[in-house]
Each structure stands twice: as C-alpha cells, then as structure tokens.
C-alpha cells in the first residue's frame, strides 16, 4: 500500500519546458516533506501526481497504474496553495462535492453524506460554518474547509501544496494534529510541499530537498 513513481515527463515550468524525472516511493501512512527553491517545480509536480497537469504522469498507487483509473477511482486529493472552494456552492455543498463522484460515498444517501461532513467539521470545531457561503469565509477558514474537503472522502493519496501557510499558529497546530491522526489511521501516503521549515516540524516523517529545477527527484 504505497505510492510509487518511476516517471519522467516534459512539463512547463516558469523557466520554460523541462524534463521532470521522479523516482521513489512513499509508503502507506508515510508523510514526506518536499522543500526547494521557488520555481523548481514543486507545485507542478503535485499537479502531475494528481493527474491534473499538462501531460499524463505515470505512477503506481497501491499497486495499480493510476493512468488506467478513471478520475473518480483515483482518489488523489490535492490541496492547493489557495483554498479554491467553489464559490457558487455553500460550505456543505463544497464538502459534499468529492462524495458525489467518489465511491463508495457516491452511492450513500444525502443524510449519510451530511452526517460524515458534520463529523469532520465538528472535529475541527467548524460546524458553525456548514451553511455559510464560501465567499464570506476568512482566508484561514477557507483553507481549513479545503483541508476537510480533501479528507472527507478518505483519499488514497494526499498532496498538500503549502496547505498550512494561510493558518494562524493555533489553527495550524490543531489542523496538523487532526490531519496526521487521520493520515496514520487510514494509511494515506502524503506529500507536503512547504517553504517554511516550521510547517514540516512535528508533521512529516522525512524531508527531501529539491535543489534545482530539472534535476531528478528521488524519494
């Protein structure tokens, strides 16, 4: 139960077109931190792993070729630098969004889905936000909802792109503890990109530094 890469792909970085070569493995339940200079392709890598980049990116997730899976079967959750909540939906509808597509949740009744959403919101003390419009949320609240959205359908792989940057110190500690508990409980391979070393502390199992764009990355 792990995430394995032996992949190389041509990607478009701010500096131009580059070869992205990645090799290695993230074990089930392992949290890997990735650091590197700005523009080296960290965010681009996450997009490719989530299969929402410019080109297909070959990898194996829990012994299955990801490219062979339909989008709703992949269950790779990516949390972007910005919360990217859907502005036409309420907080609850945003959280229901992945469950509409991903099995087994897509076959659940609306009540069961809502109960699951309520449970997740309560764990982070966010239950009062459930009926709010997302455009009324603060940056920190939006980011926490984005993290709940990523976890509500229990992903097979979790990718976090500077996901803690918008949080204050107190929220950050709470969210990190909650997230880590769930990652370990469900044995989710996780990759966290962070600029600040503090975001990696007390969270990751190991860290990798990617020194420059174009250089092969080994996990």
């Amino acid at each position: 139960m792990s995430l394995e890469f032996v992949s190389q792909s041509k990607v478009l970085l701010p500096q131009g077109s580059r070869e992205l070569r990645v090799e290695g493995c993230i074990e089930a339940g392992e949290i890997v931190g990735l650091q590197g200079p700005s523009g080296c392709g960290k965010s681009t890598l996450l997009r490719h792993i989530a299969q929402v980049g410019d080109a297909p990116f070959a990898m194996r997730l829990h012994d299955t070729e990801v490219l062979a899976l339909a989008p709703n079967e992949r269950r790779i959750s990516l949390v972007f630098q910005r919360a990217l909540l859907f502005p036409h939906l309420s907080v609850r509808e945003n959280l229901r969004f992945p469950m509409r597509f991903q099995s087994p949740y897509s076959s659940w009744s609306r009540e069961l889905q809502d109960a699951r959403i309520d449970k997740h919101l309560a764990e982070l003390g966010l239950e009062s936000l459930s009926s709010r419009s997302v455009v009324t949320l603060s940056g920190g609240e939006a980011m926490r909802i984005a993290l709940v959205r990523a976890m509500v359908s229990t992903p097979k792989c979790l990718l976090l792109d500077e996901a803690f940057a918008a949080l204050d110190k107190e929220s950050k500690a709470l969210v990190k503890t909650w997230l880590k508990t769930r990652i370990k409980e469900h044995r989710i391979p996780t990759l966290l990109v962070a600029h600040v070393a503090e975001d990696l502390m007390d969270f990751v199992d190991r860290s990798i530094f990617w020194p420059e764009p174009g250089r092969p990355l080994q996990f």
Binding site: A50, Q51, V52, N72, I76, S77, L84, F86, P98, A150
Partner: peptide, 11 residues
Amino acid sequence: LLRASQSLGAS
C-alpha cells in the same frame, strides 16, 4: 478551480 474539481474525482 477546474483542476481542484478534477482532483476531487470529477471527470
């Protein structure tokens, strides 16, 4: 936003 929706399982 489109990428976000696709990463959440939407085709």
